[in-house]
């Protein structure tokens, strides 16, 4: 019977092929863009590679052909960090609040989830119309931030629910019993125990905002964020510099994820230290 269970049937090969295809579609395009961004000076947008160089990366920073790329990049990073901080803080407290069945909790939850379902471009249109109606100027740090939060907050809240699922509220009760005041319970017990989960929420807050296009399009006002800038470039830039941007932005996304993992590792190490020595 052990024999029967270890033999691979046709389903195995079919599913393995399906999975291979999935991986190829997932990473193939990224790999091609990564390779082509190191295209030689005389190379074009397609294979073959005419030598290997970092010319297009240098071109990206030195040439003025690409518009305000650096500005767009820094705006997107600032926007991402703002979204991250606001999302992490709001989702922590919203998640804690939703543990109690307060009056109107159900409708409030569904209301906040609706903005995940509404098409982003429509939401952006609504925000821009609303701003004009009130006579406010559209700004990337104001209207676009709001648009991004409509996306990152409900997302972060859902993650927070999953994180809190494994949180035992008797820890807070035990702290209260030991004489801790609400602020001390939050600082010494709730936040430290939830911290790895909070990093996950923050990470989503950043990446969802950093590469958000539809919600940004009509809400950034006069100055573009990076996804809009790149989108514009695809129509008028015809050099491998386009790929260089792709490589750089992907690298930044990976860097953010790496930082998050390092942060979690440091926490684990601190905890190990707390147990390994007097700390």
């Amino acid at each position: 019977m052990a024999h029967a269970s270890t033999r691979r049937g046709p389903a195995f090969y079919f599913l393995a092929a399906f999975f291979a295809l999935f991986v190829a579609f997932l990473y193939g395009p990224m790999l091609i863009i990564f390779l082509l961004s190191f295209q030689g000076t005389s190379g074009g947008l397609t294979f073959p590679m005419r030598g290997v160089s970092t010319h297009w990366f240098v071109d990206l920073w030195s040439s003025s052909r690409y518009g305000d790329l650096g500005g767009a990049f820094s705006r997107s990073v600032i926007l991402g960090v703002l979204s991250m901080l606001i999302t992490a803080a709001c989702c922590l407290f919203a998640g804690l609040a939703f543990r109690r069945k307060f009056w109107g909790a159900g409708p409030l939850f569904y209301l906040s989830i609706v903005s995940l379902v509404v098409p982003g471009i429509l939401l952006g249109l609504g925000i821009s119309q609303f701003f004009q109606l009130l006579g406010f100027q559209l700004h990337w740090w104001l209207s676009a931030l709001g648009a991004h939060l409509s996306w990152t907050l409900p997302f972060g809240l859902l993650i927070m629910f999953a994180v809190l699922n494994r949180f035992d509220s008797s820890w807070e009760e035990a702290a209260r019993d030991a004489g801790a005041r609400p602020a001390q319970i939050l600082a010494y017990i709730t936040v430290p125990i939830l911290f790895p989960g909070l990093i996950a929420v923050a990470l989503f807050g950043f990446t969802l905002s950093y590469d958000e296009y539809p919600r940004s399009l009509l809400t950034v006002g006069g100055l573009n964020t990076l996804p809009i800038e790149i989108s514009n470039m695809t129509t008028n830039v015809t050099t491998p510099a386009l790929y260089a941007i792709g490589t750089v932005t992907s690298a930044i996304s990976f860097l953010v994820i790496a930082i998050a993992f390092i942060a979690i590792a440091i926490i684990q190490k601190n905890r190990a230290r707390a147990r390994g020595e007097k700390a």
């Binding site: 008797s170 702290a175 209260r176 019993d177 030991a178 004489g179 707390a274």
Partner: peptide, 30 residues
Amino acid sequence: GDRGTALMFQNYALFPHLSLTDNVAFSLRV
């Protein structure tokens, strides 16, 4: 915490992120 009582919880509710020393020292810390 101000009434001279201490409660031992059914599932103990020990703080998972603190060493035993810091668990026991918690009420002195606050």
